[in-house]
Amino acid sequence: MSKLSRLQSQATPWLLLLPAAVLLATFTHIPAVTTFINSFYTTPRGARPARFVGVEQYQSMLADPVFLAALKNNAIYALGTVPLAIGLSLLMAIIVNSSIRGRALLRMSFFLPTVLPMIAVANIWLFFYTPGYGLFDQILANFGFSSTNWLGSPNTALPSLMLLGIWKEAGFFMIFYLAALQQISPSLAEAAALEGASRWYYFRRIVFPLLMPTTLFVLVNALINSFRLIDHVIVMTRGGPDNASTLLLYYIYNTAFRFWDTAYASALTMVLLAALAAFSFIQFGILDRKVHYK
């Protein structure tokens, strides 16, 4: 083999990787590094250029009531929506996996919320939540409840968004569970039946452990989505009233593109990235060892 052809054979894989690498670097890695660097400077404005301030942006976060509220809201949002969405999706998957009548219709209707764009769904739900003559108030009026300002009260604004989040997400996760359920060999169910195991025992000791890889995957995705999806916040409450429904990413968006404080937004972004990285590490590093793979 000549020198040239050896060089060629070494260069080929790199050349093949180049398009993907360029795209990833341009749109993911370089912006992430730039964001990290920017978070240590002030925001340049007109005549005043950016100035190095060290960790000042991170320090001011601790004294920022809106950031703390956003962090708390996001924690509540994640803790409230993720387990419920996963539980609901598993339940729906089991229902549509059994041989009941109208199964195709049921599968479709469970999956429908996933197909609709979040913006459209949020606008529809905006009507559901309208005080007085919205869908929920009209239904509740039949049971003697008075009108509720769902999105306009600090106690109900975030739960209202969470309910929409669960409804929107569960159908998507159902698909993964459904696929996983259909992978489970029917002979296991037959064997369990022969041994006299109850259906609950069969689910708890056989089906659920076999679904663990799917559950882990869904858990990671649900958690990321709970930090990533803010379309409904923008459409329905814009974080109000008094930041009762402000989520972290929405606050970052506001800081960067409405307040134009790009440096502070960079610092906030680093916090979000760090939190997501920590979750992924916990899930894949620690939980993964306990998951049973076939």
Partner: peptide
């Protein structure tokens, strides 16, 4: 200056008062 941010601060105060949080 920083009009959107200052406006948001006073908007939050109005919302907090109307919802009886403060």
């Amino acid at each position: 200056y920083e009009n959107q941010r200052v406006a948001r601060v006073i908007d939050d105060a109005i919302e907090a008062s109307l919802t009886a949080t403060k």
